[in-house]
Design a protein around this nucleic acid. Structure first.
Lengths: 221, 221, 221, 221
DNA sequence: CATGAATGAGGCTTCATTCAT
DNA sequence: GATGAATGAAGCCTCATTCAT
């Protein structure tokens, strides 16, 4: 929806390649993307080879270059996919929630489910920093934008305190990301409920107990 | 897969190579490490070449292999250096602070100064995830350990709420990391005071205003 | 080595493909030849790709192979075209001239206009030496034959001195060719009048002044 | 001698690579150049492969790139060698000759011997037009320069008629080149005496008989 | 200790050609 | 006739690593 006006750090997307492909071509392209997602996640961008990708996609090596100009190209396509899908999923999950605190919880959960379900894509996005730094910045800036909008709204409504929205957005994204790494990537599963609760709790109420508070937190881990 | 010499959780990382080197050797080794730090940061591990490292270090290519078994080896050495130096610096900065809330602020500031000052090393540690995942895990586990110790202590003393310490540690490390990325890496400087304040404020008190609070936060960014 | 279908010394170059094509086919074939002429001239035979040719001809890649067996084939067709057209044009230009000295001037002028006008074809013929050496020899032998006929006639009539006709033919073709390269190719225009005059003058009267001659030549360049 | 001030169309030569090589390196480089000369002459630049060159030079493929940045590089080096050697040989051959007409004969003979002896190099220079057009132009401009100097001197002394020196130079170079092609390349030998005589004769005295001349030319070929 | 020449495996990419539709 | 997706063989080049000096 907002796709048209936002900056595209790459020349590839949306470039007149509007001529729609045949079914067969579409299928081949998809096979390549799927194979690449797997291979990049397993080996990393640099150790991955186009040969391995085409092998898994069951096409000849040359076929790769019909659909992508270069190895980096397919990588970028995957990052953009993740950017799009994740933001869309977050937007949908939060759409109907008016309590921003609740939205934070749902946002975190959505994120964690997303990166667990699409672990491979998540790994790819993380490596993007070292493959195409500009795209990587674009990815996070884009995510932060959306986040900041939500935060500012909540601040305006008095649901959240007045804070530097950008600082908050990056801090929260960072917290979520690291938790995603620790549990989704390292353990291959959505973090256990207590972990999510603790994180949400910190984000909403901080580490310091409120005055006159016995202790509403989690049992220590 | 190539991870034969697994990371050592202690500082004595190297195989009994206790026989101290000559001054000259020491100097050459240092030149190589410095060159590598630069080259890896600029080009990334995979695009960096041993040839480029030795060129900048002003030594012959063959010399490299006198000091390091492989390209990955020097990379790992740099990651271990950062692990050691950062943890030491954090430990020293926080050592005399008994107020844990204050310690968080100081910890964040110390971290941000460190990664700004040693930007190249920081980039290398980040890439470690894709070069030597096991070492990467070790790096963060190690950092988290120390963090968790501090958090548990604070919880025990009632300074912090009872929360899942590991969840908290990773969430906070993540927040700090992302802020480090956004400001130290992208802009090459320590984040401005307001940003740090906002982050500390969130970490300590959360996003949600305390009941009966007008608004003690930061001006919105 | 790949020279199975050797060049045909007559105009009927193609294997009994006498069955005339439909209008449409004829048009497609022509489009391909025109595109190829352009592409070969711009990129050279080896850097040119069939894909680029079909792209400019606005036909599918596969279509190419309906009309030409291989990339070399269309190249050869272009060389033969130039051979035919140039010889025909020269023949027509000289046909009615009985003074052979005059014929040399006209021949040179005709040649220079031809290669300027059909610069692309000229480039192709020059490259032929490295694409299909046998055809290249055929091309020059063919041209030389005609030239030698004219020279021998002139010698027989006493218009020209008795000289080795083949040596003369190649020397003159060479002179004309290099002038064509220097001006038609490098500068994209017919050489200025003085240049043509000088060349004709040398060809007819040589570099050395005739005895008792003040100096009938050109002003020095 | 004049090497320093003349334009170098390539960045490679004379670029600080003054650090002299070891004997071994020198030898390897020479082996590569010799192999390349052979391979390029046999197959042409484009059909030649670096693999074939290194095979004949008895070195590993990678070794090639220690000495030359790319396939084109070694090609250019060979063209420059020919440019240098030919011009030097011509200069030496003509140095002591004061009669310019005699110099023309000697020049032609020297050229024909050179291209027969160094047939492979000659083929390479010819293909240069399609490999590196700029270098090709440089090659001929350079040759023409020298030629023009000689011609102008002769004109000044009244040995030659006043003609456009550039036109003359290119016409004569062209004549010699085509003769070189016809005999040195096609037949692999220096052209027979009569051919050379005829060419020299045309160059000096032209095709047209001098008035009152029975016929001092060659017997017809 | 240091050198730097040599290695050779392997990666990315191009492209002439084929073929099912 | 025309299409355009697919093929797979090469080719150029890089680079980590070894080794004789």
């Amino acid at each position: 929806m907002r796709r048209t006006t936002s900056p595209q750090p790459d020349g590839t997307e949306f470039s007149g390649k509007v001529e729609k492909m045949s079914e067969r071509a579409e299928a081949t392209r998809r096979k390549l993307l799927e194979a690449a997602e797997e291979v990049f996640a397993e080996l990393g961008f640099f150790r991955a080879s186009v040969a391995e990708i085409t092998r898994r996609a069951n096409v000849a090596q040359g076929t790769f270059y019909i659909y992508f100009k270069a190895k980096e190209d397919i990588f970028r396509a995957l990052v953009r996919t993740m950017s799009h899908d994740l933001r869309q999923e977050l937007a949908m999950a939060v759409a109907s929630i008016t309590d921003r605190a609740e939205a934070e919880r749902v946002g975190l959960e959505t994120f964690l489910h997303f990166v667990t379900r699409r672990r491979n894509l998540y790994i790819i996005v993380r490596e993007c920093e070292f493959v195409d730094p500009e795209l990587h910045r674009w990815y996070y800036s884009r995510l932060a934008e959306g986040y900041m909008r939500g935060l500012r709204q909540a601040m305006a409504r008095g649901q959240f305190r007045q804070l530097d929205a950008e600082a908050a957005a990056y801090a929260l994204m960072g917290a979520f990301h690291m938790v995603g790494m620790r549990w989704a990537l390292w353990e291959g599963r959505v973090p256990p409920r207590e972990v999510v609760e603790s994180v949400v709790s910190i984000v909403l109420h901080g580490l310091v107990p409120r005055p006159g508070e016995g202790d509403p937190g989690q049992p220590a881990g």
